[in-house]
Design a protein around this nucleic acid. Sequence first.
DNA 1: AAGGTGACCGGCC
DNA 2: TGGCCGGCCACCT
Length: 111
Amino acid sequence: MNPTSDNFFERVYIVARKIPYGKVTSYGAIAKVLGAARSARMVGWAMNAAHTLEDVPAHRVVNRNGLLTGKHHFDGTNLMQQLLENEGIQVKDNQIVDFKKVFWQPEMEHH
DNA sequence: AAGGTGACCGGCC
DNA sequence: TGGCCGGCCACCT
């Protein structure tokens, strides 16, 4: 963790921790709710850095099409998929089945 | 110290 | 259907 990334990363983690069990969201959706719609790549980078943090469910973040684009960053070949399936989320060909139904829309922080 | 590289996305053709 | 581009920005040569 370095001083420049801390703030944004921490805000990413706050949102990510809210993703309900059995649901998923996207990098872009997190970026958007943080007011940085064009910084989805940074959300991906934040997930990468979050790997050591147990309380951030990085496996529940996929790309805009429900594709498991981050799977290679988990230990083993299929850990991300297995974690999702453990929550009742079906995955076929690296793709979330019924993506719209299990998609969780991050909410605006209002205050 | 400059340039390449992404766990991305929307627009465009 | 599929590919390319520009924007984004921290990291790594």
